[in-house]
Amino acid sequence: MATRRGFLAGMLASGFAPVPSWADAGSPAFLSAARKPDGDYILVGLDALGAERFRIPLPARGHAATAHPTRPEAVAFARRPGTFAMVMDCRNGDVLSRLDCPEGRHFYGHGIFDASGDLLFTTENDYDAGQGRIGLWDARNGYARIGEFASHGVGPHDVRLMPDGTLVVANGGIDTHPASGREKLNIPTMRPNLSYIDIDGQLIDHVEPDELLASIRHLTVRPDGLVGVGMQWQGELADAPSLTATHIRGQVLREIGRGAELAGYVGSIAFSGDGSQLAVTSPRAGVAQVFDSQTGSKIEQIRKEDVCGVAALNSGMLLTSGLGDVFDIGQTAQRIAAHDLSWDNHLVQVY
Rank of each mutant, 00 (worst) to 15 (best):
L43M: 07
L43N: 01
G45R: 00
L46A: 07
D47R: 14
A48F: 14
A48I: 15
A51W: 01
E52M: 01
I56T: 09
P59V: 10
G62R: 00
A64R: 03
T66V: 13
A67C: 06
H68W: 12
T70F: 13
R71I: 08
R71H: 04
E73N: 11
V75R: 03
V75P: 02
V75W: 13
F77G: 14
F77T: 05
A78Q: 09
A78R: 09
P81T: 12
G82E: 13
T83L: 04
T83V: 11
T83G: 06
M86I: 10
V87K: 02
M88P: 07
D89R: 09
D89I: 08
D89K: 10
R91D: 15
R91K: 10
L96E: 01
L96K: 10
S97M: 12
D100T: 14
D100S: 14
E103Y: 12
E103W: 14
G104F: 06
R105D: 15
H106P: 04
F107R: 08
H110D: 11
G111L: 01
F113V: 01
A115G: 05
S116V: 08
G117Q: 04
D118W: 12
L119F: 14
L119D: 04
L120A: 13
T122E: 02
T123G: 02
E124P: 01
D126L: 08
D126R: 03
Y127Q: 04
A129I: 05
Q131L: 12
I134F: 09
G135Y: 06
G135S: 03
W137Q: 01
A139L: 12
R140K: 05
G142W: 08
Y143Q: 07
A144N: 05
R145Y: 09
I146L: 02
E148K: 00
E148A: 07
E148I: 15
E148F: 12
A150C: 11
A150Q: 10
S151R: 08
S151W: 02
S151I: 08
H152P: 13
V154Y: 04
G155Q: 07
P156I: 01
V159E: 09
P163S: 10
G165A: 14
V168P: 03
V168M: 04
N171P: 05
N171T: 05
N171C: 01
G173Y: 14
T176G: 03
A179K: 06
A179N: 15
S180T: 10
G181Y: 14
R182K: 09
K184I: 07
K184T: 11
L185V: 01
